[in-house]
Amino acid sequence: MDNILEARELRKTYGENEAVKGVSFEIKTGEIFSLLGPNGAGKTTTISMLSGLIAPTGGDAVIAGHSIVSDSLRVRERIGVVPQEIALYDDLTARENLTFWGQMYGLGGARLSARIAAVLEQIGLSDRANERVKTYSGGMKRRVNIGVGLLHEPQLLFMDEPTVGIDPQSRRAILDTVKALNALGMAVLYTTHYMEEAAELSNRVGIIDHGRMIALGTQRELAQQIGGRETLSLHISDDQNSSALADVVRALPGVDQASAMDHTVSVIVASAAEALAPVVGAASAHGFRIKGVEVAEPDLESVFLHLTGRALRD
């Protein structure tokens, strides 16, 4: 079969709030698919439906040939889940955690021992496996959190923002682990609001916002969506208001979108060469001091900006 996952019109409403508003996508066998979206976009809700934790209000998904609605148990046997928040028993050691969770996935005996050894190797914790998880750093806990999802060698692994709130080194290790797993043939559904992660990892990306899939495809396909536009990044000094500058710039002719993050304003323009002078001129006229300007090829961030008028992280 070509697709390990096919989601059709998945919907989830919480009372009045429609958290996921009919999301459809597929994940090909063996690929890394990223669900990229800002906070509250519906990433976790989507993964929760796909993993059988919550029932969809509407729609369905077929994973490895089984419906999440009518055959949840079969689905759950075939997927690995790495939750967004670390979900481990702090007073158990890493090895005990892996043993317990392995048993929950039906492993036992020699196979369980072998899988635990392999996973500990994979997450680089073989030498500290017998220490209680509560003594671990945040990054180490994240690695165990991931390891739990790998024990039963799932065909499809769900990873919900696995790099949130950790140091750059652990983040690097996790991204490398994802790539290594994928190289072994595991398909991965990876959610993030870091476009760099989606860019580095993914074969294909779905951009989700306010519960809707607003763009879907390979990175090249997505970049084409913004039709040859370019991105200007304006860096201003710390004491100046970047969102005020974004408002100024957005009004200029030839400017598609502008959004502020920290002390940088990203501006999507039809042509960098033509827009550069008017943009910098307008900024100076309004009293902004530009410290530097970069011209960039369109990336996922600019796609999001182009489609929503907002930055991924606000």
């Binding site: 993993s51 059988g52 934790l53 759950r76 046997e77 928040e85 670390i86 979900a87 969770w101 996935y105």
Partner: peptide
């Protein structure tokens, strides 16, 4: 709250 119960519920257990 800690997420281990949801994690149990997405394991293949009733």
């Amino acid at each position: 709250l800690a997420g281990t119960l949801p994690r149990l519920l997405v394991a293949p257990i009733g």
